[in-house]
Write a protein that binds this DNA or RNA. Structure first.
Lengths: 183, 183
DNA sequence: ACGCACATGTAATCAGTTACATGATTCT
DNA sequence: AGAATCATGTAACTGATTACATGTGCGT
């Protein structure tokens, strides 16, 4: 199974590993992340929760605070934690899009400090390749009339460079932290 | 129709407005843009082309260079250019994701220098809001144990700030260009 | 009384990927 | 001879959005 990509269901499980939540809570949290992980609707969240429940990776507790208003709090099970640990240690296909990078970043950041380095390095490679492709394209375009293409390429180069700076910072930070742990 | 978002079909039409291409050519070009607009497959490109053809927004010419190898070159029609002009002048819903921003950037950059300012300003607003949300979240998280969330937020803040710098640069550049045109 | 935020869920639909099917040309 | 690239297309599937359906609690 070399090269599996985590999906939304895994991600939801990862969030529940951090703290028990209801579907509504998950929605709120994801909204607060802005467009980093998109803006998943209830039509995506509830089915994900039901799927996890079916596989016994989470358990539900129906809470009726005060009177009649029901909330369903989902809590990760031992099997769920095991499944998460398995996914996180598996090699992940360097998914090209920001969304899956961030989802994995959250999962791995919480669960596996060692895996973090690999994940960041993998992302680094993806961004470096992307930047190289854009630089090539910039040359090919030359100073033609297609302003749109040139703007898009410049946009891509700017964001790619900013991301690389951040990635290098984080990689340095993580490596010093791991060194500290070793002592 | 306030708030329509351009889709992939519109985008393909926009590319054909720049130069006539085959489906394969479009694929190659989009590939060279890396993950800026995703990595659309032929299963997306050819149906898009067929849809445009059905609406007479493009025309085909089957070219048999050398011998037997066929290529279908798609060329935008007058109706197609009209449709594009309509879409571009319509107010676009500030789509949250990079993909639709870049697609619109290419279209608008090529077709409407005036619309560019609006598009960039709209994007600016989206990014500013996004950054504000992330800053709020950073405060709420505090220095808890959830390293993943904190990393994601920092990542989002870094990329958002880089994007804002670029947007401001571009806005300044576009405005001086428009001034130059006015004289 | 009315509307808004809270809260859960399902069904229709849609956009796009994956996988398949086909065949020519060029490189090694 | 075989692989890689060029080149077009369709059908099944998937992941997610949109729209719908339902109901409570709180503020004005």
């Amino acid at each position: 199974m070399a090269g599996m990509t985590i999906n939304f269901v895994h991600f939801v499980l990862g969030l529940l590993a951090d703290r028990s939540m209801s579907g509504y809570d998950i929605r709120c949290f994801l909204k607060s992340l802005g467009w980093l992980v998109g803006n998943p609707s209830f039509g995506a969240i509830y089915p994900a929760l039901h799927a996890l429940l079916k596989d016994d990776l989470v358990s539900v507790e129906t809470v009726s605070e005060s009177d009649k208003r029901i909330r369903k709090i989902y809590t990760i099970t031992d099997a769920g934690r095991q499944a998460l640990a398995d996914w996180v240690t598996q090699p992940v296909k360097p998914g090209s899009n920001v969304k899956s990078f961030v989802m994995q970043l959250i999962l791995i950041g919480n669960l596996s400090p060692q895996g973090l380095t690999t994940h960041l390095e993998q992302r680094r490679q993806v961004v470096v390749d992307h930047r190289a492709a854009l630089e090539q394209l910039a040359q090919d375009l030359g100073q033609g009339v297609n302003r749109g293409q040139r703007l898009a390429v410049e946009y891509g180069l700017t964001t790619a460079n900013a991301e690389l700076v951040w990635l290098d910072e984080m990689l340095a930070q993580v490596s010093t932290e791991l060194d500290a742990d070793r002592i």
